[in-house]
Design a protein around this nucleic acid. Structure first.
Lengths: 107, 107
DNA sequence: ATTTAACATCGTAATATTGCAATATTACAT
DNA sequence: ATGTAATATTGCAATATTACGATGTTAAAT
């Protein structure tokens, strides 16, 4: 065996884990922080900022984007990424809800 | 290559990613939820509750414990785990601090 | 002292993730 | 139409994670 058994958990648990996974790599945390500091940005800027190759950054951006945390113009040469603050806020709320529920039920 | 480049990030970024990693697997989320519902608990209870083998649960518990999220008696036969609420709270605060800082710097 | 129950550790197989070079795609400029 | 700059995709190698069977360890019970 090896891979995660995904079918044995409730949906909110799976969602929680999926959300956490986005932040579970330092490159993605760094990318999010960097994006948030810019008016908008381009992948190549991030490549210069963080010490990873363009394909690697692109891959991490895909993970972040698939989680719904980016918005902007995704076509063509000069792409304009921006943090999807609403979605980001949603993440924060759900994480807090998990934390609050868990600790309040505790001994 | 393949593994994460860990030496190129600032400490707070690495810390953030490490914290998120604990919650980035549904088994660990489920374990934390289960532990929080009990007055105290024993590993084998968790094995019955979640559909994973005893060694696998034990491994996940180690990850959670290494993050400082457990407290209790860890010796011998009947181990009594409990959620370390203070540390858990600390996680929540740091996550919120990251979220608040990031979204407030955003366009 | 032996047995037993509860958990940890080891070894190993399967899968996932990370990273980059090479290549493809895209839109704009010429 | 061609060239170019910016990003995406592909393919692959290295490492990490996940999972479990087998075995070890520990403390309490007999």
């Amino acid at each position: 065996m090896g891979a995660s058994k995904l079918d044995i958990y409730s949906e909110d648990i799976t969602t929680m884990a999926a959300m956490a996974k986005v932040f579970a790599h330092p490159a993605r945390v760094a990318i999010l922080q960097y994006i948030s500091k810019q008016e908008s940005c381009i992948c190549n800027d991030i490549v210069d900022e963080i010490g990873l190759s363009q394909p690697t950054i692109s891959q991490h951006l895909k993970v972040i984007n698939d989680a719904g945390l980016l918005k902007g113009n995704f076509e063509g040469k000069s792409i304009c990424y921006c943090l999807n603050v609403e979605r980001f806020q949603e993440f924060q709320s759900q994480l807090n809800s998990f934390f609050n529920k868990t600790k309040s039920n505790c001994c």
